[in-house]
Design a protein around this nucleic acid. Structure first.
Lengths: 329, 329
DNA sequence: GTCGCCGTTGTAAACGATTACAAGAACGAT
DNA sequence: ATCGTTCTTGTAATCGTTTACAACGGCGAC
């Protein structure tokens, strides 16, 4: 016995399929009609088929959020924010992971044309011409949580990480730490380049000389440890700014291995202000790049564009703040 | 200009829709036919509509993984494992979050009848009759990563947490810690009850008296801190076992607030052996409940059941091990 | 040359919903 | 009594695929 269809319900209720559909969608009908249909639905345990429905109406009432690395705690903050906005608007949110490769991301964006969802929020790590092209040509609205050039013609909401790094440097110098090193993620990623540039600018602004720069292989804990190892092999900075919280925690572990204490010997600042920042020990001073707000705004942009596909693309920048915790003096 | 359909491709190629479909699905056709169709597809940028396809063939080639709390790092381990197995088998994995409430879970399971995916892996926190019923009656195969009674008639893969706690207690006593306290998650959850029972059994086995038991409000970091506060207000155990890693990290923070050091003053053991365990400081000794293996096996069970819906339900138990790190002596 | 067979292609009917359109009922106004 | 209006309901087309079935052409065997 297979699932009942609308035709089965119609037969059971002794009415037409059109009437069943109308009742189900809350269109006007007599009390008796509503009654009969609902009884039949109840009796048969009928549940409408979303595939058939979306084929006909051209919408799925699902939205997709694509993240590069589920292990990065910054995404949980974002995911929560997106979920909240999206479900309040009556959409289901589904999360998929792309690999770290840009080709995976391109495949995902192209794949949206298959009609999996009505829209996409994507936070790409690496961006190239192919990806921009696929986003521009995407069949469904796309919002990029991150930085892509305006020519992509797409809604974006991004962080201001140079400004964030400036806040970190300002805080560290105010506390008397002048010898600041920087542990970045891969330079071929979008946040990687932005943060490298931000660090250089900030150091210039404060007339400081960098106490060492390391490019980690990844935005991960393990890569952070590696980077820390390399860094402390050649220098003893008074502070380290890290391009995200996972890297920062990795670096702190490495510091401990060297017998250095945080923040007395070395101050450490992370970025993202994710849940990990408060969970780490000592709790991590971290640049809040507004992940929650970025998630929220991205979701709102997506909904707005679904409502009006013709509106001109918005580019929102969310301002950072600094969450001071105990990893800095 | 809307997306091209198979009819458009057929027209452009000067062949019938059936032929296009056949070429697209790799069914036998002449070289010339394949050639013409592929050119037309290329030219128009045709992408088949997954909704229409799945409506017709009755399969979506998507699988759903439902998790209760994306903030819990144990799920990232699991997600990675599931993703790997599932994508190797040619399925797309989509992740959705249920709330902590059982009604959300029931709604999700019922909702699967709408045809969102070909199968579901769910890891429910709380289980009641409604949920069991909905799982038993679910239109698509369901695998439960967790513990539901056999009468649910469903494939399950669960951890052996009592055994895991036994390992923890054994380890602690071997290191000379006899005064062991336990910080559990909510008792009305499935893991909560299992772990409470496991702790009691383990203490009995080792002829020890509990040095305090606290039920945290949630399986979260914040709840762990609260629980730690309560615990240390009334007792000074030599060791604390926590029902998951987030709770353990919360407890360690509270210990630090009391000026107690880990592991010298108090040893701490977590459960799940998630990525957080190695990221925490000191790195957390944690009971490995086999999340990765559970994820992998759950995915395999799901694929097997999709292949053969009639096979009798399997109930797999994954054995725990202990990952000793520096939070215990 | 005719027949049968096989391989390739096309026609049309599904899948399960929504919805434009038409038909019928009810009712008041003339 | 007739007509027009409005409200409710049913019939059938449609969304974009897949696929059963039929048609056709080519080819070898007799």
């Amino acid at each position: 016995m297979s699932r009942p269809t609308i035709a089965g319900v119609a037969r059971a209720a002794g009415v037409s399929v059109a009437s069943v559909s109308r009742v189900l969608n809350g269109l006007p009908a007599t009390e008796e009609m509503v009654e009969r249909v609902q009884r039949a639905v109840e009796e048969l345990g009928y549940v409408p088929d979303a595939r058939a429905r979306s084929l006909k109406v051209g919408r799925t009432f699902q939205l997709t959020l694509a993240v590069a690395d589920v292990g990065n705690p910054v995404y949980v903050t974002m995911m929560r924010a997106v979920e909240e906005v999206v479900s309040a608007a009556g959409y289901r949110l589904v999360v998929t992971t792309t690999g770290p490769d840009v080709v995976d991301e391109v495949a995902l964006v192209r794949g949206m044309a298959r009609g999996y969802a009505d829209g996409l929020v994507i936070s790409p790590l690496r961006v190239d011409e192919d990806l921009i092209k696929s986003i521009r040509e995407c069949e469904v609205p796309v919002v990029v949580a991150g930085n892509v050039p305006p020519k992509a013609g797409v809604d974006t909401v991004r962080a201001n990480s140079p400004k964030g790094i400036l806040l970190a440097v300002e805080h560290l110098t105010a506390k008397g730490r002048q010898e600041i090193a920087f542990v970045n993620g891969p330079a071929d990623t979008v946040p990687g380049t932005a943060r490298a540039k931000g660090f250089a600018e900030a150091m210039k602004e404060f007339k400081l000389r960098s106490a060492g720069e390391i490019e980690a292989a990844d935005f991960t804990f393990a890569a952070g440890r590696e980077a820390g190892k390399k860094l402390f092999k050649k220098s003893r900075p008074g502070a380290v700014i890290c391009a995200n919280d996972l890297l920062a925690v990795g670096v702190m572990h490495e510091l401990a291995a060297y017998g250095l204490s945080v923040p007395q010997d070395v101050a450490v600042v992370g970025m993202d202000d994710s849940e990990l920042a408060e969970q780490s020990f000592p709790p991590l001073t971290s640049v809040n790049l507004g992940s929650a707000e970025r998630g929220r705004r991205a979701a709102e942009l997506l909904l707005a564009r679904i409502d009006d596909p013709a509106r001109s693309p918005r580019r929102i920048v969310v301002q950072p703040s600094l969450s001071v915790r105990r990893s800095t003096p």
